[in-house]
């Protein structure tokens, strides 16, 4: 069966999007993302005033990989993980919190957002997201993507790659 990356869809997804918007307003951060541990973006929001973000695929992949590398480092010392993951430069910073064992909440901020606020509101948002997830857990949808999915996707593969030979 297909694994949902999080039990998040429909109304619950909208609520979490709302929480990401609140997080941006309260912390004055630029972007808030919910990504899964494999580096796929689940949901993301950008503050109205923030510049266009870099490639979110690249960002999510690097944050997720960095996070698993950090976890592996902690495990070398017999710890499950490090308590917090903050990266800061003069211009920009990232703050990452685990959402259960499947996802990460990422806040990207700049000098106009004090780190304390970012941490506080990210943690608060994390609790609220967790609450939404707990509420909706039972209602996990059947991953019905249609029986014809593979055939359709296969046809698109042919289109993208042609007959597979070099041009």
């Amino acid at each position: 069966m297909l694994e949902p990356s999080l039990d998040l869809y429909g109304e619950a997804a909208e609520r979490v999007e709302g929480l990401l918007v609140d997080l941006l307003t309260q912390s004055r951060a630029r972007y808030a993302l919910l990504i899964d541990r494999q580096g796929f973006v689940i949901l993301h929001r950008r503050a109205a005033w923030a510049p266009k973000p870099p490639s979110l695929d690249s960002l999510a992949t690097l944050i997720a990989s960095n996070h698993s590398a950090n976890e592996a480092i902690a495990q070398l010392f017999g710890e499950a993980s490090f308590r917090e993951t903050v990266q800061q430069s003069d211009g920009v910073g990232t703050y990452v919190e685990s959402v259960g064992d499947k996802a990460l909440l990422v806040t990207v901020f700049d000098a106009s957002a004090p780190l304390g606020k970012v941490k506080l509101f990210t943690k608060r948002t994390l609790e609220r997201i967790q609450a939404v997830l707990d509420e909706t857990r039972e209602a996990a949808p059947v991953a019905d993507i249609g029986g014809s999915f593979s055939a359709h996707a296969g046809a698109l593969l042919d289109e993208l790659f042609g007959d597979g030979k070099a041009p």
Partner: peptide, 15 residues
């Protein structure tokens, strides 16, 4: 394992 993202209606595979 392939993941399905209902929120964004995406299916993702990792090779």
């Amino acid at each position: 394992m392939s993941t399905i993202n209902f929120a964004a209606r995406e299916i993702n595979f990792k090779l």
